[in-house]
Amino acid sequence: MAEFLQFAFSGLTVGAVYALVALGFTIIYNASDVVNFAQGEFVMIGGMATVFLTALGVPIPLAVVLAILGAVVVGLLLHRLAIEPARGASSVTLIIITIGASIFLRGLAQVVFDKQFHTLQPFSGDTPIVVGGASILPQSFWVMGGAVVIVVLLWAFFNHTLIGKAVLATSANRLAAKLVGINTGMIMSLAFALSAAIGAVAGVLVTPITLTSYEVGTLLALKGFAAAMLGGMGHPLGAVVGGLVVGLLEAFGAGYLSSDYKDAIAFVVILITLFVLPTGLFGRASVERV
């Protein structure tokens, strides 16, 4: 049982990060149909910027805020300078643009920051908390709690604010949204800013556990994308569930089956799921118009 709990908490912590990355994918996808492979770089920027700002003597809370703002600015620029000018291009072209953007951002990070690994002090110490025989780092609760707070805030934002509803309307039908007077361009900017902020928060929360470097974004983008697809592209709840499931599969796979093949186990489950549910766990079947 202790073993099971240990694996579960490990999976939930890692899964919470995947979930936040997957949420970032989803928000941008819904607003603009763009699959943003630079999503992982926001996580990297959040972590690395905080590390470097604190090294410059900026107090941690301020450094965190500045890092998130920095990521938001990068997100807005990405939209304004790379996505917006290519509006109307095919979805594959847009994907290649975001891949270019992620290579660019990584290249920038290696010049602006460095190529070393870095860490942050855990927010509330590193004495493990024992739950049912499993020892869990306090920072894990920060990660999981942070993910919950973000999900709740997003839910409230989408359902109880006018702007949030406008975002939902845009993702449902862009033309109709335009016709009822929604500034869809602004909505898209908002989506990029929001995704960037979520990614950066994830980066800050997780750095004390997983460390960070200019390169961490690639793998997170890969896993986050897989998680978003498992949940059903465009479905926020699906993204969260998908992220947690992938995290748990990896942890249980490594714990009970084979650590060599734990990533494979996650992907096999994704493949099987998609064979049964071709649009993911929560996705709706899309109807092609002729």
Binding site: A82, G88, I97, G100, A101, S102, R106, Q110
Partner: peptide, 21 residues
């Protein structure tokens, strides 16, 4: 040198934006 990847990413974006097909 150090700007290699930055430029590679930049060129990929520029190519795709201006020659999107």
């Amino acid at each position: 040198h150090d700007y290699e990847h930055l430029l590679l990413g930049l060129l990929m974006m520029v190519f795709m934006i201006f020659l999107r097909a």
